[in-house]
Design a protein around this nucleic acid. Structure first.
Length: 689
DNA sequence: AGCTTTCAACTTTTT
DNA sequence: GTTGAAAGCT
């Protein structure tokens, strides 16, 4: 990317004296605009703590902070209020919650917690029913519907039941002094709407607000934003109406339409220069999205030249498609177009599509990662136990040491640990090594050293046992004893006032134990035709695996792997070589058998296709299935209408794809005929036998 | 009748 | 790879 900003980016950065909406096309350098604008605001005299940047995911927030750090230095970046909508909500509620009758240490329920409260409130043990309620209630809460108004919003019998359950659910939350994720937005909004003093205080604190991925905001988030910026309206919203793909969870592009109406001084700036993809890819993207009605006109272009034409891949079925993808990866690498596996991504509509690709990649010995899921390891209770396991693997892991020695509390406080830390710094050793140092007596009391030694000895004992415990059953016994020794269940109960929440957390712990034990015992894996049994592992070996996974995740280190991900999860990412899988009618655009395709739905599916296309930097393959398995029978695969909409014949440097499509159809028909003949022969042979 | 086994189907997801 | 439903077995 060039060192200087282009005129549109500059305009976006320098428009400081009023509301600003940046329509940031895919790959148009929007994060750069946001961070540069933050620097500009600082220059303009804004204090760092008065600048708020709001994102949707923690990852995005972290990334933005990193980028800001590079630009303005760590010191200034530290004070910036960069956070997600939700963590900003937490901050507001921690400080002002008492005004809403919420104690300062209210608890936040995650979706598992919510599920168990809902089962309880609805008097059911059926997880699916409770999940249905959870979904409906969350959607209501995200569109501004409360337990009072829910009954009017209910459209069928199920929803009417959900509305009743919602009432009881909300009562329970209030009784537990707990909030769910949606409350983290709606309660601050309620506060600001009713309490001018609190509103004034926060408007004064967050004097300039930047919002990333504005097209993903829901109705409640929009209202909160309005309350935050007040009539001063000093804000910049950055978003792309063409990349709004979260309508199904309450995001609404109404928020984009409303903005100029509610803020007449709004300056709208489109960013159209793309710094990511080749001309052929952008042309296909523009052609597809042209099928949608426009809110803000924009057309992406780049200076990269036409590049390779977009490839159209047709395969006989899912397995064949996966083979074609593997072949393509090998061909591009062999041809010197790519050096690393990490340059490739395979994108698909639904998670289950990943499986076939996983098998094919494994067979071809190509490393891959499936994105999404793994958030399991983010839970505090799991992190606690992982810290212990990490310590067993590597005693010199100081963060793991600190977490283990304080979880659960064992009478070793920050005084002792501070001294130990100081000591280890001085002697350039790890804290665990410092534990048994003789000269420790000069800085710490006998009693403190006693408890430290006890901890150290226990860790050594655990480590020995972990190394020698093999197999699922023994592993379970060992781990449960360990958890009993450290009193972890009791710790969870003490930690959490709400008994239900504590139980749910303990449930997660048990899941984790299962997970570990499963890996300790030999497991039978079926891969394609072959069946093999993996080695039985010791607890320590499994812990090592976990440590590796965690440390890679922590350092954000990239392994050289092909990425498999859903289209939704791919937004914001990019790869040199992208393979769009299963671009068939019914899959993309997705259509369930029992539901009709509305214009809104189709438009969102089209945006999803657009997001997929624009992930590619250099080459893009669009893959369709001639035959699609649907249960036992094989149905005819119809290429997605989006493929036609790409107008690939406009691609430069290839044969006319309409001709190619025609040829492929003929081939398909011939093959199908041949198959039928073969099938008839087989049947005849079967009959003879 | 109640249990086990087999078979098919399966949106998208963050906090 | 998991779950739910239907068919088959005791």
């Amino acid at each position: 990317m060039a060192d200087t900003l282009n005129p549109a980016q500059l305009a976006a950065v320098h428009h400081l004296d009023g509301p600003c909406l940046v329509i940031a096309g895919a790959g148009s350098g929007k994060t750069r605009v946001i961070t540069t604008k933050i620097a500009r605001l600082l220059q303009e005299g804004y204090a760092a703590k008065n600048i708020a940047a709001i994102t949707f995911t923690n990852k995005a927030a972290q990334e933005m902070r990193e980028r800001a750090k590079h630009l303005i230095g760590a010191r200034a970046a530290k004070d910036l209020a960069i956070s997600t909508f939700h963590s900003l909500g937490v901050r507001i509620l921690r400080e002002e919650g008492t005004r809403l009758g919420l104690k300062q240490q209210f608890s936040i329920l995650d979706s598992d917690d919510v599920l168990s409260v809902l089962k309880d409130a609805g008097g059911t043990t059926d997880a699916n029913q409770a999940k249905g309620w959870q979904w409906t209630i969350s959607l209501w809460k995200n569109t501004g519907i409360t337990s009072e108004t829910a009954i009017h919003a209910a459209k069928d019998e199920n929803e009417r039941v959900a509305a009743v359950v919602m009432g009881r659910y909300e009562e329970r939350l209030a009784a537990y002094q707990a909030v769910d994720f949606d409350d983290l937005i709606s309660l601050p909004l309620k506060l600001f709407t009713n309490d001018a003093e609190a509103r004034g205080k926060w408007q004064d604190m967050l004097r300039y607000v930047l919002v990333d991925e504005y097209q993903d905001t829901n109705a409640v988030q929009y209202e909160l934003l309005k309350q935050l910026v007040g009539t001063r309206a000093m804000f910049t919203a950055v978003g792309d109406d063409d990349q709004s793909i979260y309508g199904w969870r309450g995001a609404t592009i109404e928020n984009l339409k409303k903005l100029p109406l509610e803020f007449p001084r709004l300056k709208v700036i489109p960013l159209e220069q793309n710094y990511r993809s080749t001309g052929n890819i952008l042309r296909a993207a523009n052609n597809v999205i042209a099928g949608n009605p426009k809110i803000y006109e924009k057309k992406l272009w780049s200076e990269f030249g036409d590049g390779d034409p977009v490839a159209l891949v047709e395969s006989d079925g899912e397995e064949h498609e996966a083979e074609r993808a593997v072949a393509r990866i090998n061909a591009l690498r062999g041809g010197g177009f790519a050096q690393h596996f990490a340059e490739f991504a395979i994108l698909y509509r639904a998670n289950h599509q990943a499986r076939v690709f996983e098998q094919a990649l494994r067979r071809a010995q190509i490393p891959y990662k499936v994105s999404g899921g793994q958030s399991f390891f983010d839970r505090t209770e799991i992190k606690d136990l992982c810290a212990w396991l990490r310590l067993l693997v590597n005693q010199d892991d100081d963060p793991a040491f600190l977490r283990s020695i304080t979880v659960p509390k064992r009478g070793i406080g920050h005084q002792t640990l501070g001294a130990l830390g100081e000591f280890s710094k001085q002697w350039r050793c790890s804290m665990f090594e410092a534990l048994f140092a003789e000269s420790l007596g000069t800085v710490l009391s006998k009693k403190a050293i006693g408890s430290l030694h006890e901890f150290g000895r226990y860790v050594n004992e655990l480590q020995y046992r972990a190394e020698h415990t093999v197999g699922a059953e023994d592993a379970r016994v060992f781990i449960m004893e360990w958890l009993g020794d450290i009193g972890y269940e009791q710790y969870l109960i003490d930690q959490e006032e709400n008994e239900k929440v504590a139980q749910a957390r303990w449930g997660n712990v048990l899941d984790f134990v299962d997970w570990v034990c499963k890996r300790c015992g030999g497991q039978i894996t079926q891969d394609g035709g072959s069946t093999f049994e993996t080695e039985r592992q010791s607890v320590l070996q499994v812990a090592q695996t976990i440590s590796v996974i965690l440390s890679l995740a922590e350092r954000g280190e990239e392994r050289d792997e092909v990425t498999l991900t859903t289209l939704h999860a791919s937004k914001g990412l990019e790869w040199p070589h992208v393979f769009l899988a299963g671009v068939n009618e019914g899959l993309l655009p997705f259509k369930a058998d029992d539901e009709e395709m509305t214009a809104d739905r189709l438009e969102e599916e089209r945006r999803l296709m657009y997001v997929g296309i624009t992930r590619a930097r250099r080459t893009l393959a669009v893959s369709t299935l001639r035959r699609r398995r649907k249960g036992r029978e094989t149905v005819m695969g119809v290429p997605s209408r989006f493929i036609l909409e790409m107008k690939l014949h406009e691609s430069i440097g290839r044969e006319d794809p309409r001709e190619k499509l025609k040829r492929m159809r003929e081939e398909m028909a011939a093959k199908a005929a041949a198959r039928d003949v073969q099938a008839a022969k087989d049947a005849a042979a079967e009959g003879k036998r």
